[in-house]
């Protein structure tokens, strides 16, 4: 909870409701910031447009997962049934692709589901144990009913006064400086 050095991580601004948050995001987007984020207790509809976010990359991970699963299923069933130790059962062919389809489908689904959830977590940089924002007492309400924008000091356009006044003019109800948490 305590930071040893007082490096500034960024500015946290609170907004009244989803409409105010959307409006403020549009302003921050138009001002050209890149290292910033909005925080809300649920995914506010159309906020991606207000923030100017590109399409999520999760879809590519999922399709890669599906192809991998399919390939594993084909190789596993073909190699074990037709190459490594072929056994005649009920006169069925060794390479019986019709009867291999259920497992091909199931493994494709399984690996793409892994891709969806673990890919999503990886893209979000999770799991992680700590974050500078968690030091803010006000921020605890982000998971309840509060809406925030945080702009990081790493952003090229960041300046403590100009960024602050941008967030204020966008209708912030409170502004807080967040310190870097350096262990």
């Amino acid at each position: 909870m305590t930071s040893k050095s007082s490096n500034n991580w960024g500015i946290l601004a609170q907004y009244e409701d989803p409409a105010a948050l959307t409006h403020a995001c549009e302003k921050v987007r138009d001002a050209g910031y890149s290292k910033w984020d909005a925080y809300c207790p649920f995914p506010v509809h159309d906020l991606n447009e207000a923030m100017g976010l590109p399409r999520s990359k999760v879809g590519w991970i999922v399709i890669t997962g599906a192809c991998t699963g399919l390939l594993i299923a084909v190789l596993l069933q073909w190699w074990t049934s037709a190459v490594d130790y072929p056994i005649t059962v009920a006169g069925k062919p060794f390479w019986a692709w019709e009867q291999f389809t259920p497992i091909m489908f199931e493994l494709a689904v399984l690996v793409s589901a892994f891709g969806a959830i673990f890919g999503m977590l990886a893209l979000n940089g999770l799991p992680r144990l700590s974050h500078p924002l968690f030091d803010s007492e006000r921020f605890l309400r982000a998971s309840d009913d509060a809406f925030f924008i945080a702009i990081e000091s790493k952003d090229a356009r960041y300046s403590e006064t100009a960024t602050r006044s941008l967030l204020e003019s966008a209708g912030a109800t409170s502004i807080e400086l967040i310190q870097e948490d350096q262990a």
């Binding site: 984020d37 909005a38 925080y39 809300c40 207790p41 649920f42 995914p43 506010v44 906020l47 991606n48 923030m51 976010l53 999520s56 990359k57 999760v58 879809g59 999922v62 599906a66 489908f105 199931e106 689904v109 793409s112 589901a113 969806a116 959830i117 890919g119 999503m120 977590l121 893209l123 979000n124 999770l126 799991p127 992680r128 144990l129 700590s130 974050h131 924002l133 968690f134 982000a142 998971s143």
Partner: peptide
């Protein structure tokens, strides 16, 4: 909670992952 912090960039990937999971879980 894996350190989830209600970030919208996070929500954006989350919503995509959720709808894709729903899509693949349906035939499943």
């Amino acid at each position: 909670s894996l350190g989830w912090r209600m970030s919208f960039r996070g929500w954006w990937n989350y919503e995509k992952a959720y709808i894709l999971l729903a899509g693949i879980a349906t035939p499943l």
